[in-house]
Write a protein that binds this DNA or RNA. Structure first.
Length: 401
DNA sequence: CGAGATTCATGTGAAGTATACCTTTAGGCTTAA
DNA sequence: AAGCCTAAAGGTATACTTCACATGAATCTCGTA
């Protein structure tokens, strides 16, 4: 039997999964475990919508994977359903994730996305921003309705743009004759509100809600709940769920992470044509997730960013480099540009690119002063060895080296 | 020997430039009555 | 005459450049004990 047969066989038999969708991150379960309190709180705040009243703006904190998005969407869709049952269609529920790079990292794009979600359309660029606002107003204000806008990862948006975007949005209410806008902001940084314009803070923070992270036991409950649907009988080895929960609990109780772990572990086991998901698969799953995330980021980076990264990788690990400095990176980068016939950018720009890599966690850079030898960034490549190799392959392929 | 002054290599902010799109508008051409 | 197409004019976003100034500790300088 050759390898292909083996691969196909492992898929043709009944796999380990009964229903894999349940473990995917965009799946919305019917029952949301350990979040009843928060759901009720959100519901209470949103309830006035049923009487057609405007509701307070809501602000929600909580670490990633603490069920914020899930809860809000769930309550949102319930309330939309409810209003429909009451014979109204005067509620629009719009969910926007400000972090998805393609969609929204400028005021313009968020607005465009908003309009798009509401059934309108705007070009990707070109209009004066205030024109876009007036289009938005036109679109909304043609009848009496309530617009409930959820801005997920709002801290990202504010960081990239500025907080008067939110201010404008809240102020829009005074321009609207018929409809009303309510905002729900979701953020995973607790400190986010602190450095906000006071006016914005007071208008956005009319109601606040904190989602505490799940602890390991709660994570276990969530995992069990879903694993029952996702896997067949007796597929999971004893302690698998506990281990997933423990891993995720270590990462500030990230439920999404826990589910991913379980799913990937299942996939790996299946690929091995194992009959069971055993504990070791969780470790490999953990590595794989880490790696895939990084490699995805690297692959989708623009060309110049990749060139810079290539420069860093060329220096990384060389004996004569105790630590890497901006100037070294710039030289290596120039060399690579010349070799690959790419345009060479200024050092100023490279400085910004390095700062962005730092944000992404691909490198760790800190500004140090070397006295007479001036000031510079001390750069460390933060990729695990096995990732480095893969990353290099990806870069070479994409840069055509 | 110690306090300031210097200095280096870059960080960082502001403002400007080039390019790629977008809308609006006006003029010219086609078309149908 | 109405309708349609096209090109020019006037905007914006994005990625980058240019210019100018800010930094902060090792090192130098020089007065003093």
């Amino acid at each position: 039997m050759d390898n292909l047969d083996k691969i196909f066989n492992s898929f043709s038999g009944k796999g380990l999964f009964k229903n894999k969708v349940v473990l995917q991150s965009n799946y919305t379960p019917e029952i949301i475990t350990h979040r009843t309190e928060q759901m009720e709180a959100v519901a209470t705040i949103l309830a006035p919508i049923l009487r057609g009243d405007k509701v307070s703006n809501l602000f929600i904190y909580g670490k990633t994977g603490s069920g914020k998005t899930l809860t809000v969407r769930h309550v949102g869709s319930k309330i939309v359903e409810k209003t429909k049952n009451l014979g109204n269609d005067n509620l629009k529920f719009v969910y926007i994730n400000c972090k998805m790079k393609k969609i929204s990292d400028t005021e313009y794009r968020i607005l465009a996305e908003l309009i798009h979600e509401l059934g309108g359309s705007v070009p990707a660029t070109g209009l004066p921003t205030d024109q876009v606002y007036s289009r938005f107003v036109d679109l909304i204000d043609n009848k009496k309705q309530i617009i409930l806008i959820v801005l997920d990862e709002i801290d990202q948006a504010v960081k990239k743009i500025s907080d008067n975007f939110i201010y404008t949005l809240t102020r829009l209410n005074s321009e609207l004759k018929n409809s009303q806008i309510s905002l729900i902001g979701i953020s995973n940084s607790i400190t986010f509100m602190d450095n906000l314009d006071p006016r914005v803070r007071s208008s956005l923070g009319e109601e606040e809600l904190v989602f505490p992270p799940y602890n390991a036991l709660q994570l276990q409950d969530i995992l069990k709940e879903r694993a029952d649907n996702a896997f067949g009988e007796n597929i999971l080895e004893e302690g698998v769920i506990a281990k997933c929960a423990a891993f995720a609990a270590r990462e500030h109780g990230d439920a999404r992470r826990a589910l991913d772990l379980l799913r990937v572990a299942g996939e790996l086991a299946e690929r091995d044509s194992s009959k069971k998901v055993s504990l070791v698969y969780i470790d490999s799953a953990n590595n794989k997730i880490e790696r895939d995330k990084m490699l995805d980021i690297i692959e989708s980076e623009p060309k110049q960013f990749q060139l810079v990264l290539m420069g860093i990788m060329a220096l990384d690990g060389k004996k004569d480099y105790e630590s890497i400095f901006t100037g070294d990176v710039y030289n290596a980068y120039q060399e690579i540009c010349n070799k690959t016939k790419n345009e060479v950018l200024t050092q100023r720009r490279i400085s910004d690119i390095l700062a962005e890599f730092d944000m992404l966690g691909i490198i760790n850079a800190r500004v140090i002063s070397k006295g007479r030898q001036g000031r510079t960034r001390e750069i460390k490549l933060m990729l695990a060895p096995n990732i480095k190799i893969k990353a290099r392959e990806i870069l070479e392929k994409s840069l055509d080296i």
